[in-house]
Design a protein around this nucleic acid. Sequence first.
RNA 1: GUGGCUGUAGCUCAGGCGGUUAGAGCGCCAGGUUGUGGCCCUGGAGGUCGGGGGUUCAAGUCCCCUCAGCCACCCCA
Length: 421
Amino acid sequence: MTMKRPRGTADVTPGDIARWRYIEDIAREVCHLYGYGEIITPTMEDTELFRRTVGETTDIVEKEMYTFEDRSGRSLTLRPEGTAPTARMYLQENLYSVAQPVKLAYVGCPFFRYERPQAGRMREYHQFGVECFGSADAAVDAEVIALACDFLHRTGVDQLQLGVNSIGCPDCRNDYREALRDHFEPHLEQLCVDCQRRYEVNPLRLLDCKREECGDKAAGAPSMLQYLCGECAAHFAELREHLERFGLPHEVDQTLVRGLDYYTRTVFEITHHTLGAHDVVCGGGRYDGLVEVLGGDPTPAVGFGLGIERLLLILEEEEIELPSVPGLDCFIIYIGEDAKGAGLQLLQELRSEGISADTDYLERSVRAQMRFADRYPSRFAVLLGADELEAGVVTLRDMSDGSQQSVPRNELTAVLRDAVR
RNA sequence: GUGGCUGUAGCUCAGGCGGUUAGAGCGCCAGGUUGUGGCCCUGGAGGUCGGGGGUUCAAGUCCCCUCAGCCACCCCA
């Protein structure tokens, strides 16, 4: 084995694919139920799109993007997240001119981040995400969260934790940022090096440092919620009422601060204990300023991203039963070269009638063909040999109990169609 | 990007202080059944011991580098 897949990427084999389809099918179903329309955006975008929206000082932009120049010298980037591209599409496809709000969803799209891989953290990973543009109503925040929870429950996942917080609008956040700086300033020397950097770049991050020395300093820090302006506070209160109404238990987590610059007001995370260090399976929030940053009219919006690989890990950990891969309806076993032609013809007849069918291509013994049919697994086996050819019949074997019957050739499709229905 | 653990057959793993042809279970293939799967029995194929270099008479085993996976940071889905 000389060629290997790139670090942090994964192959999905036929044995794995049922799990993916299971998740994607439920995602599409839930999107339909909530009125979200599926979209596909390009895997790569103009690098500037992410620099401007995600934020110059974020880890994503500073060190995690797959950025390259194409042959004409344009700088392109393999998308590291889905919200900015969706906002870009909203503007470029004039979706602001259709009936608002506009609800969009993407299912199983690939994203790329150059990071050190771990279980649940890939360089190429996949997300199910939704974005709703055009409404500032806290009920939409609640709807988006409800959709995520609903989806996760339908996949069979339990014991999820929903954390919510508000980081306010730019105005109240600026006040709060200053208050935080005032609080930490006297202890600046004692903070870890990372926090000293955070102090300058993103003071909100000072709150969720896991180091003990920093945690102590954060203990008495002012809370964001105290600094929310009237509208932001009302929005957050409303969101919580709606969540109650929807029967969605949640915790207000004041250390919850999303990493990307475009978030405003509502931020939330859904976590699951089996995931370990990166226990976030779904994260999202409101981003009322994003569309404007991209040159559109001010447009309130809210959405989330949900990691497929992480959900897969949870499903596995929780040993949630997934629908098994459908087997084959019928396996055709031919005995002797003479029967092969008739067998192949029968094979195509069955397929054209919507009956899944396969046959042996390795000229194996009857015994081996039977075993192959068994392993497939195949519901029925059709045996075709000299005896059957002469009589114009086939021997139809039910693999579940071994019972056999002789069926006229021209009646086989009808018999099987009834049997597999 | 930092620190740590691991890496033997398709899979899960054995291989005392270096010593001849590297093993097991499962899986795969074939036979036991001149035309019949699952269970059982017998046999077979399959290994650059992750890769490269070094020490040594001798390296799966010791040392260095490298790659990959995992864990903890950082950060995030």
